[in-house]
Design a protein around this nucleic acid. Structure first.
Length: 482
RNA sequence: GCCCUCAUCGUCUAGGGGACUAGGACGUCAGCCUUUCAAGCUGAAGACAGGGAUUCGAAUUCCCUUGAGGGCACCA
C-alpha cells in the first residue's frame, strides 16, 4: 500500500438515521475519493450500546445505495473490534499516557453541576490521575469498575493544520482528561476513531465542523501512540432554517424521506454538492461525473449553510424535465400506485399512464406531486365545488355554453386534441365568450379544477364518453345550485 | 462561564488589493408567451455586520466590537 494513497471514510454511528448533514459529509468523502482515485470506506461506529437504534445500520446502507455512493471497503463495525481497542488502552496505561479512574458517575455529575453553577468550565478534576499504590489498591478492593482516562498534558498547546481552516491551536490546559475506555470496556469515540483511522490507513479525515474542538484530543492521542495523524478537513455544518444544528425537529431528518417525497437521487447529489462547495461563479447543474471530475477541497467553503428546500425542489424539477418520457413514467408509477386514491383500480394501466405523463412532466417539482396532478384522469366521480363553474359567468350562460358544447361534440367521430379544438375554439366566438372564460369553464367541468394540463389534450386523453359524461354532470351541478 | 470556528442579497454562493456601478442561482415582484397551471423568455427589488488600522487604493490584509454556530458526557 503506497504512502500517497488517498483513503477516506464515512463513519456514522447507528444512534439515529442519517440526515442531510451526515449524507453531505458522506458525499464529500466519496467525491474526494473518486476524484483522486482513492478508496472510500464505510465504518459503523457502534460503541454506544445504550443509544443503538434498531434498523439504523440498514437505513445508512439504504441511503448510500439510493444516492449511489458506493464504498470500497466495509462496512466495518467497531463493536466487532473491541479487543483491538482494549489492547491499545492497556499499552497506554502501562506506558504512562493513560490511567485508571474510579470516580463514580454520580460524583462526576455533582462536580460538573457545581462547576457550571460557579460558571467554571466543566472539567474532570483529575482526582485519580496520581493515585498512590495504596489508594489504588483500596479502590480496586471496593469493587469499583474503573474507566481509563487519557493523561492530557497540563501545559503547552496543541495545534494542527486543517485543510479548510488552516492552522488551529488549542491550549492544553483547556482540555481535560477524557475517557478512552468506558466501564463496560467499550472504547469511546475518541479512542476508537483514532485507532481505526490509523489501522485502516486513513489519509484524510473529512468530517463536520462539530468535531473541530475534539481534534486536539485526537492529535494528542496520535502523539502518545507515536502514530502519524491523518490530514484533517472540517466541513462547514448544514443548519436548519432556525440556524441550529440539524436535528429531529427539522422534519424530514432521515435522508430516505426525500426519496419518499419524490426527490431524484441525481438532484439530491447535485444539490448537496453545492452546500459548502462550488465550481465557479455560475455553474449550478452538475452531473455526478462532472462533480467527481471537479471536486476539490480547495473549493470547499468555511461558512455553515442553511438548507433551502425550495431550491432542492427547483433543482429536482429541472432533473425531472430532463428525463425522457419513458424514464419519467417509470419513475412516477410507484408514486401513482402509492398515492392515487384507493378507489382507483389497481394495477394501473401502463399504456394509459404513458399517455398522461407527458402532459404533466414539466409541471411536477417532485414525483410526489404527480398523483395529485393526474388523479382526475383516473377517477370516475369528480368532486369539486359547483361555484367554480359559475365563477367567471352566470349560471345561464354557463349552462348554455356547456349545452352547446355537448351538442357539437356528440357527433364528433374522430376524437383527438385537434378535432376537439376545431370544434370548441370557434364556439367561443359564437357564444360571445373569451377563450379564457369558455375554456376555463370546460376545464372545471372536465377536470374538476381550475388548473390542469392543456384542455384539448386532456379531453383527448380522457375518452369521448367520459368527457360527455362530465359535461352533463356539470350541467346537473349548475342546476342543483339554482 | 470557558474554548474553537465563522461572518457578501431572505437562502445557496462567486470574489483571494485596483477587472466591483459586487456576478450567478433559488425565492419574491412585474412583463411577455398563453385556454388555466406550469415551463420558457425579459426585467426589477435585494448583500460586503459595525468600528478602527495598513495602503495611492480594500468585500478582499490586520485588530477590536457585535452577531451566529459548534464544543466542553462512562454520546457520537
Amino acid at each position: 500500500m503506497s504512502h500517497s494513497e488517498i483513503r477516506v471514510r464515512f463513519a456514522p454511528s447507528p444512534t439515529g438515521y442519517p440526515h442531510l448533514g451526515n449524507i453531505r459529509t458522506a458525499l464529500f468523502n466519496w467525491l474526494f475519493a473518486r476524484h483522486h482515485g482513492g478508496k472510500f470506506i464505510l465504518r459503523i461506529e457502534d460503541t454506544d450500546v445504550t443509544r443503538k437504534v434498531e434498523g439504523a445500520v440498514e437505513n445508512i446502507i439504504d441511503s448510500l445505495n439510493w444516492l449511489g455512493l458506493d464504498w470500497d471497503e466495509g462496512p466495518y463495525f467497531q463493536s466487532q473490534r473491541l479487543p483491538l481497542y482494549q489492547e491499545i488502552v492497556r499499552k497506554l496505561v502501562n506506558q504512562g499516557p493513560a490511567y485508571l479512574c474510579y470516580c463514580s458517575p454520580h460524583r462526576l455529575e455533582e462536580m460538573r453541576r457545581e462547576q457550571i453553577r460557579r460558571k467554571q468550565p466543566p472539567k474532570y478534576d483529575r482526582r485519580c490521575r496520581e493515585l498512590t499504590v495504596q489508594q489504588r489498591a483500596q479502590l480496586e478492593a471496593s469493587g469499583v469498575t474503573p474507566v481509563v482516562r487519557f493523561k492530557t498534558p497540563l501545559e503547552g498547546e496543541t495545534s494542527f493544520h486543517d485543510l479548510i481552516r488552516a492552522k488551529v491551536t488549542f491550549q492544553n490546559d483547556t482540555l481535560d482528561d477524557f475517557i478512552l475506555l468506558k466501564s463496560d470496556s467499550y472504547p469511546t469515540y475518541h479512542l476508537a476513531n483514532v485507532v481505526d483511522d490509523h489501522l485502516m490507513v486513513i489519509s484524510h479525515v473529512l468530517r463536520a465542523d462539530e468535531w473541530l474542538s475534539s481534534t486536539p484530543r485526537h492529535i494528542l492521542l496520535y502523539q502518545a501512540l507515536d502514530w502519524q495523524p491523518p490530514q484533517f478537513a472540517h466541513l462547514p455544518m448544514i443548519l436548519g432554517p432556525d440556524r441550529a444544528k440539524l436535528s429531529k425537529r427539522h422534519g424530514a431528518t432521515n435522508i430516505i424521506e426525500y426519496q419518499r417525497q419524490g426527490i431524484l437521487p441525481e438532484a439530491m447529489i447535485n444539490f448537496l454538492s453545492l452546500l459548502g462547495w462550488s465550481l465557479d461563479d455560475k455553474t449550478e447543474l452538475l452531473s455526478r461525473e462532472e462533480l467527481v471530475k471537479h471536486f476539490t477541497l480547495e473549493r470547499v467553503g468555511k461558512t455553515a449553510a442553511i438548507f433551502d428546500k425550495d431550491k432542492l425542489e427547483w433543482m429536482n424539477g429541472v432533473y425531472l424535465r430532463r428525463l425522457t418520457p419513458e424514464q419519467f413514467a417509470s419513475q412516477a408509477i410507484p408514486f401513482l400506485q402509492r398515492d392515487l386514491p384507493s378507489s382507483v383500480k389497481r394495477p394501473l394501466d401502463d399504456t394509459y399512464i404513458s399517455i398522461i405523463m407527458p402532459l404533466i412532466q414539466e409541471r411536477a417539482r417532485t414525483l410526489a406531486d404527480v398523483p395529485h396532478l393526474v388523479d382526475f384522469f383516473f377517477l370516475d366521480e369528480l368532486e369539486y365545488d359547483q361555484s367554480l363553474l359559475i365563477k367567471a359567468m352566470d349560471a345561464v350562460s354557463a349552462t348554455k355554453a356547456i349545452e352547446t358544447s355537448l351538442e357539437r361534440l356528440k357527433p364528433l367521430e374522430a376524437w383527438n386534441a385537434v378535432s376537439v379544438e376545431n370544434i370548441l375554439r370557434p364556439l367561443a366566438t359564437e357564444l360571445g365568450l373569451t377563450t379564457s372564460k369558455f375554456f376555463g369553464l370546460l376545464r372545471v367541468a372536465i377536470t374538476g379544477r381550475t388548473a390542469s394540463p392543456p384542455l384539448f389534450q386532456t379531453m383527448a386523453t380522457l375518452d369521448k364518453q367520459r368527457c360527455l359524461k362530465r359535461l352533463n354532470k356539470a350541467l346537473q351541478k349548475i342546476k342543483e345550485q339554482k
